[in-house]
């Protein structure tokens, strides 16, 4: 059954991996999806796989002015944005003692500050319509920590606190704000791992396998659906039992 008919969704970082699976899942539920990528090439790729069910755009989420203008333009063109999925993210791994300021700042800016900016631009329309769904993609490591990723883990944990606070601010306006925290998911990022590395990771995953992007997308689609209207400030972990919180 399609539950998101006539809804418009904005998914950041939608050109591949989890973002793409989320976009496709929302489309399967009947939504029109605007997917963002950092490059025109990425936008074209999104255009291609979404076809008539959506549109790919190039968007630099760290540029506030461009962002605000783009959101305004999208709302004009498509009438509204009902669902926002903040998925765009980067990694700049390094041991804390070796981490450069720019490695720290790039990750905090893209993975945390940009979410603040996109939410601010989109939530105005949601407030007026008295409805909206914001889903931020966090990570299991935001809860468990991970050596070599102080920047990434700080940003992903930050999203959880951000989402809870915003959820309290806008709950009375019919807007929910939640997180989905994936564990190890089979994407380009994890394809680079060797079999030995994978075996070591599986030792910590009761499900003994990587997750599929579609399994993360299913949680996002649920939170976007009418049935999840009373869930807000929550984090759904999708990690095969790797961390139970």
């Amino acid at each position: 059954m399609q539950s998101l008919t006539e809804q418009v969704a904005l998914v950041t970082g939608a050109s591949r991996g989890i973002g793409r699976a989320i976009a496709e899942s929302l489309v399967a539920q009947g939504a029109f999806v605007i997917g963002t990528a950092t490059s025109e090439q990425g936008a074209a790729a999104i255009d291609e796989y979404l076809g008539d069910n959506g549109k790919g755009i190039a968007l630099n989420v760290t540029d506030t002015e461009q962002l605000t203008d783009t959101i305004k333009g999208l709302e004009k063109e498509y009438g509204k944005i009902d669902i926002l999925v903040n998925n765009a993210g980067i990694t700049r791994d390094n041991l804390m003692m070796r981490m450069k300021d720019d490695e720290w700042e790039a990750v905090i800016n893209t993975n945390l500050s940009a979410v603040f900016r996109v939410c601010k631009a989109v939530i105005r329309g949601m407030m007026k319509r008295r409805s909206g769904r914001i889903i931020n993609i966090s990570s299991v490591v935001g809860t468990t920590g991970n050596p070599g990723q102080v920047n990434y883990c700080a940003a992903k944990a930050g999203l959880v606190g951000f989402s809870k606070s915003l959820a309290k601010e806008v709950a009375a306006r019919g807007i929910t704000v939640n997180c989905v925290a994936p564990g190890f998911i089979d994407t380009d990022m994890t394809k680079a791992l060797t079999d030995d590395q994978k075996q070591a990771i599986f030792a910590n995953i009761p499900a003994e396998r990587l997750g599929k992007p579609e399994e993360v997308a299913a949680a996002v689609s649920f939170l976007a659906s009418p049935g999840a209207a009373y869930i807000t400030g929550e984090t759904i972990h999708v990690n095969g039992g790797m961390a139970m919180v």
């Binding site: 105005r124 407030m127 007026k128 601010e169 806008v170 009375a172 306006r173």
Partner: peptide, 9 residues
């Protein structure tokens, strides 16, 4: 406080 933000909008 949120009502006043909406009022300004």
């Amino acid at each position: 406080s949120l009502d006043t933000v909406e009022l300004v909008m």
